[in-house]
Each structure stands twice: as C-alpha cells, then as structure tokens.
C-alpha cells in the first residue's frame, strides 16, 4: 500500500466517523444550538467525502449551499428566537422515541441490505475530475432541464410564501393614537412608521 492510498483510507475513516458521530449528536443533543453547529460540521465532512471521490465541484457546492446558506440560516433563525428556557415535557416522549428509533433502524437495515445485495462494479468508472463542472452544466441544461426548472419554481413558491408570512402583521392604525397609518410609509424605511407625536 503506497502513501496516497493509505492517506485516502485514513481520510475516509476519519470523515466517516465524523459524519456518523456528528449526525448522532445532531439528533441526540439537548441544546438546539449545539445541534445546529454540529449539523454544519456534518455537512463539511460530507463535502470532504465528495472530495475523496474526486468531485471537487460538488464538494465546493455542498459547502456553499449547505454550510454557507442552509446551516447559517438555521443558526440565524435559532438565534433570532433565542430564549433559554426548558422545553415543555411532551406526552408519551418515550413511546415517540421508541417509534422513531424503530423507523430509523428499519431504514438502516433496508439501506444495509441494498449495499450488500447490489453487485457493485469494482473499481468504479474513472472520475472525470476537472471536466466535471462542464459536464454538470451540460446535463442541467439538456436532459435534466425539467427538474432544474421545476426546482426554481419551487424556490419561487417558497419565497412568495415567506414574504406573505412575514408581511402578515401590517399595522392598520397607530397603536398610540388610533389614527390610520399611511401604508405607503411602510415602504420608506428612512421615515418613521408611526406618525410623529411630538407636535401635538
């Protein structure tokens, strides 16, 4: 076994251990903030696995999308509603844990069976390496065009939904004086939302 092969093996073992233990931590830790940060670590380790598979573009995209966008927004949301309070006790928590643990175990068994039963071609097809970026682009705009465009529609729907939810509470009348508020003012962030009361 030469140097690069053993490096590859060690990297794989370390990354796999990080992914498995990190995911367990995400699910089992009591503190939600720790879970969120650990999730970022797991995403990074998955990006490392992509690197090992010689898919550097996918690895970079994984870091950009999952760590840089998804995980940051999750942490952002947790911190915006940051209240250090104990969770209310949930009814039948033990039963719920048992059920979800059973579902996860069944899933694991299924995947394990797939892994063992599938006749894998070893060694796999040669990696395209640096060309991968172009090939992904070609596929996205030819035979995978429909899913690609559908994903954009999905994102647009999510965005409109978010705006509708965020815009729900528009003040119709001033809390202090009871006068109607000029709705046009809400767009102008430089001017105060409520009418100036210092004059009266």
């Amino acid at each position: 076994m030469n140097l690069s092969n053993s490096t590859e093996l060690i990297c794989f073992l370390v990354l796999a251990a990080v992914v498995v233990s990190g995911s367990m931590g995400v699910v089992l830790l009591e503190n939600i903030v720790y879970s969120a940060f650990l999730l970022g670590g797991v995403f990074m380790a998955v990006a490392g696995l992509y690197l090992l598979l010689n898919a550097s573009f996918v690895a970079a995209a994984q870091v950009l999308v999952y760590v840089g966008a998804v995980n940051v927004l999750i942490i952002f949301a947790i911190m915006l509603v940051n209240k250090r309070e104990n969770m209310k006790p949930i009814e039948g928590l033990q039963l719920r844990r048992l059920v979800s643990g059973g579902v996860c175990a069944a899933m694991l068994a299924l995947l394990f069976r797939v892994v063992v039963k599938t006749p894998w071609e070893l060694p796999g097809p040669p990696a395209i390496g640096e060309e991968a970026t172009e090939r992904i682009g070609e596929h996205l705009f030819t035979d995978y065009l429909l899913p690609f465009e559908l994903a954009s529609v999905l994102l647009l729907m999510a965005m409109i939904g978010a705006i509708v939810l965020a815009r729900r509470d528009v003040l119709v009348e001033d809390v202090g004086t009871g006068q109607p508020v000029d709705q046009g003012l809400i767009e102008k962030s430089d001017t105060p939302l409520l009418p100036d009361q210092s004059i009266s």
Binding site: F37, S56, A60, A61, V63, L64, G68, N82, E130, T133
Partner: peptide, 25 residues
C-alpha cells in the same frame, strides 16, 4: 491550480459567518 478555482474561494468564504455567529452566541 484546482479546477474549481475561484468557486472554492466563494464557498470557503461562506463558512465564515458560522464562526461569527458562534462567537457572538
């Protein structure tokens, strides 16, 4: 001279806010 080049920088610089949020929290 990695093939993803400048994209690597963009994706790496997106990790930074996590560290900032972490230290802020």
């Amino acid at each position: 001279n990695v093939g993803v080049g400048i994209f690597l920088w963009i994706s790496l610089s997106s990790i930074q806010p996590i560290g900032l949020l972490m230290s802020g929290y």
